[in-house]
């Protein structure tokens, strides 16, 4: 499979990148690791006329500690995240999540920014980003802004990103007690259901991916949480559950409850 023709520019600064995005608009696509974009382009499902490669922007592939937060540069690979001592010590749920993505080779190239921008409804990060109440830093020609996790995911392959915005980093609060549980789709190894649970004192925050066309915070579970795993029965309350040949909506809803229970345990 060979993509349609396109131009390619590798930028060295975020300003250069946003200028180009501004100039080319819809015709441009941001290339980071390329592990969502290039397969789609090979199948000619996506035919941008220019790729703006941001992988060389200095500082965007760093993981830093800043007060109570861990800041993960958008260009950090899954491999980098899962093997970072800082992440493992302060935000282990993210390391856990990254380790379930794809395979060795995919984790060596795929990036957190790319995955979030692509917003596959079965991707793993969204559950954890939601459960952690992470904040997504984005930049455009008009400046930078921060999008709350809950506002970010808006539908299948749809996010709150404006067309001219680029994700630069994700800011996570430090998390002591977090747990990501995934039920793999047996062919793609994406999540049929992925559940991230972050416990904080008496409360709990639950992010779920793979179940609905948009990853969501399972507020009904959070509300019903009493320290036991019983609240898992509310995993899909009010949710329109997806269906495919691996998991119809009945089974997927059941799995969501099972995985929430596991993640709460």
């Amino acid at each position: 499979m060979i993509p349609a023709k396109f131009d390619y520019i590798k930028v060295s600064s975020i300003n250069e990148a946003v200028d180009l995005v501004d100039k080319h608009g819809f015709d441009a696509k941001i290339l980071a690791g390329g592990h969502s974009l290039i397969p789609a382009m090979k199948l000619r499902l996506n035919t941008p006329s220019i790729l703006i490669d941001i992988s060389g922007i200095e500082g965007m592939n760093e993981i830093k500690e800043s007060g109570d937060e861990i800041i993960v540069g958008a260009n950090c690979t899954h491999k980098q995240i899962m093997s970072s001592d800082l992440v493992k010590n302060q935000l282990n749920i993210l390391a856990q999540t990254a380790a379930t993505i794809g395979d060795v080779q995919v984790r060596n190239r795929g990036t957190i920014g790319g995955s979030l921008a692509h917003s596959d409804p079965s991707a793993d990060y969204p559950a954890t980003v939601l459960a952690c109440d992470a904040k997504i830093e984005v930049t455009s020609k008009n400046g930078s802004r921060t999008i709350d996790a809950e506002d970010f995911f808006q539908g299948i392959f749809t996010t709150a990103l404006e067309d001219d915005e680029i994700i630069t980093a994700v800011r996570f609060p430090k998390v002591k007690d977090g747990n990501y549980q995934k039920f793999y789709q047996s062919a793609s190894r994406f999540a049929v259901v992925g559940v991230a649970v972050v416990k904080d004192g008496n409360g709990v925050k639950v992010g779920i991916t793979g179940v609905a066309d948009t990853p969501y915070r399972a507020k009904a579970v959070e509300k019903a949480y009493d320290g036991s795993t019983d609240a898992a029965t509310h995993a899909v309350d009010g949710v329109d559950v997806m269906s495919d040949h691996f998991a119809d909506s009945e089974y997927r809803a059941h799995l969501a409850k099972v995985m929430v229970k596991k993640a709460l345990a």
Binding site: Q185, S186, A187, S188, F190, H245
Partner: peptide, 10 residues
Amino acid sequence: ITGSYMDYAM
């Protein structure tokens, strides 16, 4: 609907 390795499990 199982025309790739994303949907045909081996």
